[in-house]
Amino acid sequence: MNKVLLIDDDAELTTLLQEYLVEEGYDVVTDTDGRAAIAAAAGNTVDIIVLDIMMPRMNGIEVLQRIRKLSQVPVLMLTARGDDVDRISGLNLGADDYVPKPCSPGELAARLRAILRRAGQPAAGVSTDTIRAGQLVIHSGSRSAEWRGEALELTGTEFSLLEVLARSAGQLVSKQEISKRAFGKPLTPFDRRIDVHISSVRQKLGLREDGQSWIQSVRGQGYQLLVD
């Protein structure tokens, strides 16, 4: 049973979501203070955190920033509908996904399942092979990666994206294909989460000797992982 920490000061929405997620088989703990999420991340006591951005005392963006200094626990952000700034800020800081409020319990449960699937051990039938692409080594079974002989710290979402590119290293992979293979769903219009997460992975890989990124983009088409 996956343990979910739900941080939101909207009591009515929190109760609704908690009841639904419990029926779906989750162990759900709620709180109204973002500091509880930081403590849970530090103690490694939950499997995933659902974090509202607009909260008193400490907003969700600041909480996420502190969490990422302590842990790579999956985090799903609840954002105001239409607020692209909050969404992009959250993704830039390492959030795994976001859901606009007001959200349906069913949509939230589906997003949680997808994130946990990306962050956890592979299910039956999922490849557990090792992928080598230049100086990058991807271990699909343990969902871990090495870059230039050193462990590469990635969120679950970042790992899924990099694995897709590594399997097609040296080839252009369309955004639509990346979305289907990494997220299990088609890319929707104006969805920038792939771009934001790729930007984070680029920073972790650093630059090539020629000053270019190891992950090249083709405007309007997709991304390509270079191997030499």
Results as ranks from 00 to 15, higher is better:
27 D>S: 13
37 A>Q: 06
23 E>L: 13
10 D>P: 04
47 D>A: 01
12 E>K: 11
32 T>C: 10
11 A>E: 13
31 D>K: 09
34 G>Y: 04
17 L>R: 00
43 G>I: 07
29 V>A: 13
32 T>P: 00
29 V>E: 15
23 E>S: 14
17 L>H: 04
22 V>W: 01
29 V>W: 06
41 A>M: 09
14 T>M: 09
41 A>G: 07
48 I>E: 03
23 E>P: 00
32 T>E: 15
21 L>H: 01
21 L>A: 05
34 G>A: 08
46 V>G: 04
14 T>Y: 01
13 L>A: 13
29 V>H: 11
48 I>N: 03
43 G>Q: 10
34 G>F: 07
13 L>P: 10
12 E>Q: 14
42 A>R: 13
34 G>H: 03
32 T>H: 10
43 G>C: 06
44 N>A: 15
48 I>R: 05
40 A>S: 11
43 G>W: 06
16 L>D: 09
30 T>L: 03
25 G>N: 01
19 E>F: 12
29 V>C: 10
31 D>Y: 01
27 D>C: 10
21 L>N: 03
28 V>W: 00
12 E>N: 10
40 A>T: 05
28 V>E: 02
41 A>R: 05
14 T>C: 08
11 A>Y: 11
18 Q>N: 08
33 D>F: 10
44 N>I: 05
38 I>V: 14
20 Y>E: 06
40 A>W: 03
23 E>G: 08
39 A>W: 03
48 I>Y: 06
48 I>G: 02
14 T>L: 04
41 A>E: 05
27 D>H: 11
18 Q>K: 14
